[in-house]
């Protein structure tokens, strides 16, 4: 599912609330049938790569192993099995050869792949991605979409925030239009109509031949 809306629409806030990282002023959130606090660990979160400190002294493999923390448990180090799973996840996103490099020396696209690998290694039931395609090259975009499709095929639910409508079309089959409130929710084709998009973005939407829609901001 794609969360679509302009900047400040509340996409990141919603994701953080689903993760239980934000206090709720009112209302209730249920994740995988339980409260967010209980669902933690079964939910994987992929932050934007550029919010992380590029100078931080961790290797790529260590970053992926962070996804396993919960399974490894307190006071213990990562075992052979954890490392094998982490390497497999890196292989899946095509950066296994960089496992021993420092996270910060990777390019933006590669960092985003590593963060996805971390979520894969966590073996979660729900995957939340915050603007995964921001500042990412075309090859990585294709690869991310492919990996996400594989995950969905194995029964993992995927929710991502994005403002890239074209990618949302490719990667998701449902969309939620958001701008301070929910504007539409449903299958891609029904939610992404010109009218609803205009309402979401408050600008003018231009419908091109073939169903693609371009939205210009105010």
């Amino acid at each position: 599912m794609a969360l679509i809306g302009p900047n400040g629409a509340g996409k990141t806030t919603l994701i953080r609330a689903i993760l239980g990282l934000m206090p709720l002023t009112s209302g209730r959130i249920e994740v995988l049938g339980v409260s967010p606090a209980k669902a933690r660990g079964r939910v994987a979160y992929v932050p934007q790569a550029d919010v992380l400190d590029p100078e931080f002294p961790v290797s790529v493999l260590q970053v992926v192993l962070m996804g396993r923390s919960r399974r490894i448990g307190w006071l213990r180090r990562a075992g052979r099995e954890d490392k094998a799973i982490a390497m497999e996840a890196l292989r899946r996103v095509g950066v296994a050869d960089r496992a021993d490099d420092r996270f910060g020396v990777l390019s933006g696209g590669q960092r985003q792949r590593v963060l996805l690998a971390r979520a894969v290694a966590q073996e979660a039931e729900l995957l939340l991605l915050d603007e995964p395609f921001n500042g990412v090259d075309a090859t990585t975009t294709d690869l991310l979409i492919e990996v996400l499709a594989d995950l969905r095929a194995t029964g993992v639910a995927v929710v991502m925030s994005t403002h890239d409508l074209a990618v949302a079309h490719l990667a998701c089959d449902e969309a939620c239009l958001l701008n301070r409130q929910q504007i539409a929710f449903g299958p891609m084709g029904e939610a992404l109509t010109a009218d609803l998009l205009r309402e979401t973005y408050g600008g003018s939407a231009v419908v091109l031949a073939g169903g693609a829609t371009i939205v210009t901001a105010r």
Partner: peptide, 22 residues
Amino acid sequence: VALHKELIHGAFDPAGLGALGY
């Protein structure tokens, strides 16, 4: 030493650690 793994994760990516339920 005992909390090394968690402390490093928290320093690197606090939101990610929080999402894991720590």
